[in-house]
Design a protein around this nucleic acid. Structure first.
Lengths: 213, 213
DNA sequence: CGGGGTATTGAGACAAATCAACCTTGGTGG
DNA sequence: CCACCAAGGTTGATTTGTCTCAATACCCCG
């Protein structure tokens, strides 16, 4: 985030930032609460979600170390953020952060990019939810996870999130998610080592299913 | 957009801006083309859409007079914009516009708000596509149109877009859209005067269906 | 008063949701 | 070390909803 920014300028902000830890399933922030901080995720995985007041949940994104959280331009968060693993985060006061960002072109540019990436991701997801079959949505998720994960063997995918989280992300039920995984295994696209470890066998076909109709 | 900004400061930008007209179904801009301009919509209705390279289309938003178009932070547009009616727009060179925005806090704030509104809209749509039945999605659309339209009688809704556009917006087929309208009429929530004129009879129930599960 | 594009309606096929039973896994205590 | 339990995941049978394909109705424009 601070790449290209003079270290001395950033120091005051870092000085007033706080390091925090979260346990699995703990919430970092809640939708509609006042947006007082922005965060960077140091370590672990979290999940952005929105819950309608009737209790219906939509998972909006999965975020990993290095990602930014809470960059709303409104004064309230538009979503909740929940830890999927034990998590370490750096917390910055939002007001000061935005001020600093304003006075540094590079930083400003970085923040902008984050914003447009979030939007781009949301648009992709819209596409996936719009008109895709269950197994295609699973491919969409797997490809996303594959691209994001930093381990060497990109064909081994770890599903940190539970089946319910996947279902709420893709607009399906857990049963359908389960069956879709089974089908992809059946068709030889993937291998399921355990519920949370999947191996990609046919990347090309997986990508086809993930992007096109 | 320029509310709260000193007129004299804005004048140079306005001087180099251009007024343009578009016919129905004409494109204002295409996805992946270079983002050279930003626009404000003076008059008429347009539609933001994305087409996957397999030809699958997702309508992302409907925009009305007063709305802003092309506020990407990347250098390419992430979507296409097509006119639904004859349209009048004001075109600003993007580079100069962003420069001006940077030097005016009020304008900067306005631009930010636009960005976060777009994101908020996308999140709402995600929710709608995630886990809603066809007739609930139609309610979602009707409520959106109702809130946005500026005519006096808010219960009379004009559907400027065709059934195919609605279908691509809500992730359905035209037949299902048609049936969903029929069902809502059947149940007494709406009255269908013509394919493009709908009257809301039971707003409360419509809003329930639009937002909750 | 046609005629072409657009919308509606119907019947059958198909995918996903639902409801219910069963299987795995990881942790606990005997 | 094994039996047991609880939570999460899988599988099966049935129902519900949407898509698909096809036929028919509508309406605006010339």
């Amino acid at each position: 985030l601070f790449r290209g920014v003079n270290t001395a300028d950033v120091q005051p902000l870092i000085d007033i930032s706080k390091r925090r830890q979260l346990d699995t399933r703990q919430y970092l922030l809640h939708q509609n609460s006042e947006a007082e901080s922005v965060f960077t995720l140091i370590n672990g995985t979290v999940m952005m979600e929105r819950t309608s007041f009737s209790g219906n949940r939509q998972v909006v994104a999965f975020l990993y170390s290095g990602d930014f959280i809470g960059f709303t331009h409104n004064d309230e968060y538009e979503f909740s953020v929940q830890a999927l693993t034990p998590v370490e985060i750096q917390e910055f006061p939002r007001k000061e952060f935005l001020q600093l960002a304003d006075s540094h072109d590079v930083l400003k540019r970085n923040v902008r990019e984050i914003g447009s990436n979030v939007l781009a991701a949301a648009l992709d997801q819209l596409f996936a939810l719009g008109k895709k079959k269950a197994h295609e949505r699973i491919c969409f998720l797997l490809e996303q996870l594959r691209v994001r994960q930093h381990r060497h063997d990109k064909s081994q995918i770890e599903l940190i999130m539970g089946r319910q989280d996947i279902a709420d992300y893709l607009g399906l039920t857990i049963e359908t998610v389960s069956r879709a995984f089974a089908r992809l295994k059946q068709e030889g696209l993937i291998n399921i080592h355990s519920a949370h470890k999947v191996e990609i066998l046919d990347l090309e076909r997986l990508q086809e299913l993930a992007s096109t109709t």
